[in-house]
Write a protein that binds this DNA or RNA. Structure first.
Lengths: 263, 263
DNA sequence: GATTTCGTTGCGATAATCGCAACGCCGGTT
DNA sequence: AACCGGCGTTGCGATTATCGCAACGAAATC
C-alpha cells in the first residue's frame, strides 16, 4: 500500500483504481499520459499503464496514436446517456431535493442541460398556494428562467450564440432581452453563484437556481420555484440552501479536481 | 468462466470485470440485482457483489434501497458528456468515416442526437463538385435530413412529439410534412435499416444515413452526403457500406445486448 | 548528438482476489 | 403461521492476480 489508502473492506482495489483513473479526466485536462496520471494518483507507472490499457480495450479510453496519450472513449458516451435516461439519477437527486423542498417549503427541480436547452430531470412538488408542477422530461429554451441562467452562465461565452441560434430566430427582443443584457446577467450569476428570476413566466412565481458541475463543466442546475410572496423576504437564506444542494450534487456527479471521494 | 477467459496479458482482470458489469446495463435492462448479473456474467455472486459495491461507492452505480437492485449512477453522466465533448470520439470515428469516404468518394458525417435535434460530431470532407462542408458542432432540427431520420426513426414513438415540439411550432407543414407522413417515413427507415433524403435542402444533394446504437438506444447516425448524380446510380451499394460503418461504430460505443466484447 | 522522459514489459514477492460456504433477511407459497 | 426459496452480504483460506521494482527501446528535448 502507499500510505493511508485503507480500503473499507469489501471494495476491490484494482477496480476502484480504474474508476479513479476515469475520474481524473476533466474539461480542463481532457487527456493524460501514463506517467502523468501515475504521479497524480501516486501509483506506479506500470500499474497505471495496465489500468489504462484495460480501460482502452473496452473503449472506455482511447489512445491517440500520435501523442500516446489517452482520452475518454466512446463506451462512456452510451453509458452516460443511459444513466441520464434511467432513474438511477433520481435515486441520488431526489433525497437532496426533498431536503431542500422541506427546508424552503417550496417545489424544487433538477434540470440538465440538453443542447442549448434544459430538460426537467427530477422534480419534487410541494403543495402550496401556487402549485407549480413541473413535467419531468419537458424541454425549456436555455435563455430563460433561473435554471437556464444558472446553467448557461457557466458555459464558455463563445458557445452561447451557436447554442441559442435555433431558438433566437423568430424570438422577439422582448422575450429574451438583448444579447448584451443576457451577457450582463450571466456575469452577475457567475459572481453570485446563483440565479434569480422574478416571474419571467408568471409575475407571482420566483425561481432561485444554482449550477451543478461535473468534471469541470456545468451539467445542470438545482432550483427552488415558488410564490414570490413567500420567497422574496428570505431570498438570501434560500439562495444559500440552493447553492449548498447544488454543491452536494456536484460531489456526486463527479468530484471536482483535487478532491478525492471520501471513504 | 475461468477456463477459456485467458486475459491477453497486461489486462487487469478485476478492473476488466468492473467494466463488464457496467456494460451489462442497457435500455431494455436498466437495472440488475447481484445474483442476476452473476449468472449472466458467469461469475460468483460474491465477486459481483463486491464489484457492484465498488462501483456504487464511486457513484458509477446506485442502489435502489427499496429493491436492492442497481442502476447506472450519476458519475457516468458527467463522464459521458465529457467524452462526447472531447475529441476522444473522433479518434475512433474518423478512421471509420475515412474508410467510408474513400470507398464512396463522398463526404461523410457522424451526427449525435441532442435533445430533439442532432449535432454534427465528426465530419470528413471529400473534395468534389459540390463541396458539402459540415460544421462540427452545428445543430440541426431532428425532423429533417437523412441523418435525422436515421436517428429518430428508432426513438420510441411516444417521445417524438415532445422532442420536436419546440421546432414544430411555427414550422409550416411544407417543411416537415404531416405527422402521419413522418411516421410513415420512419417505418420505412426502420424496415430498411437506413434513411435516404433526396435534396431536402438542395435538390442536387443526396444523403444516406444509418443509425448507431449504444446499449439499446440510438446514439447517432453515420451519413454519406454528396452529389445526387454520383450517388443515385449506386444507392444500394452505398447504403450497404453506410450500414456496415454504422454497425462497426455500434460495436465501439457499446456492444449490443448479447454480444460480448471480443478479447 | 546527448540526455531525459516516455510507454511498455518481465519477473518474483506479496497482498489482494476468488470461490466456497454460511448467514440473516425478505417475500411468496403451502 | 410456518415454510421455503431466493436474495444480498460477509468470513475465511488457498490461490492467483497484482504490485512495485528494474530494465528496455523509442521518442522527444535540449
Amino acid at each position: 500500500m502507499s500510505s493511508s489508502s485503507r480500503v473499507p473492506s469489501g471494495v476491490l482495489q484494482t477496480a476502484d483504481r480504474a474508476l479513479l483513473v476515469l475520474a481524473a479526466f476533466t474539461e480542463r485536462e481532457p487527456e493524460h499520459g501514463v506517467s502523468d496520471l501515475a504521479r497524480r494518483l501516486d501509483l506506479d507507472k506500470s500499474q497505471v499503464q495496465r489500468l489504462m490499457a484495460t480501460l482502452a480495450r473496452r473503449d472506455f479510453l482511447v489512445a491517440d496514436p500520435r501523442t500516446r496519450r489517452y482520452r475518454l472513449g466512446p463506451a462512456l458516451v452510451g453509458l452516460g446517456r443511459l444513466a441520464e435516461r434511467g432513474d438511477g439519477i433520481s435515486t441520488v437527486v431526489r433525497p437532496v431535493l426533498l431536503d431542500l423542498s422541506e427546508a424552503t417549503g417550496e417545489s424544487t427541480v433538477f434540470n440538465v442541460a440538453d443542447g442549448g436547452r434544459y430538460r426537467c430531470s427530477v422534480a419534487v412538488d410541494q403543495p402550496g398556494p401556487f402549485r407549480y408542477t413541473s413535467a419531468v422530461g419537458q424541454l425549456f429554451p436555455g435563455h430563460g428562467g433561473a435554471s437556464g441562467h444558472a446553467i448557461f452562465a457557466f458555459y464558455p461565452e463563445e458557445e452561447i450564440p451557436a447554442l441559442f441560434a435555433p431558438e433566437l430566430e423568430g424570438a422577439t427582443d422582448a422575450t429574451i432581452g438583448t444579447r448584451a443584457e443576457l451577457r450582463r446577467r450571466y456575469a452577475e450569476v457567475r459572481e453570485r453563484g446563483y440565479a434569480v428570476s422574478f416571474g419571467e413566466h408568471d409575475a407571482r412565481v420566483v425561481g432561485v437556481a444554482a449550477p451543478v458541475f461535473a468534471h469541470g463543466t456545468v451539467l445542470g442546475s438545482v432550483a427552488v420555484v415558488g410564490a414570490a410572496a413567500h420567497l422574496r423576504p428570505q431570498l438570501d437564506a434560500i439562495a444559500e440552501r440552493v447553492v449548498a444542494a447544488a454543491d452536494a450534487l456536484t460531489q456526486r456527479f463527479g468530484s471536482p479536481p483535487g478532491a478525492p471521494q471520501p471513504d
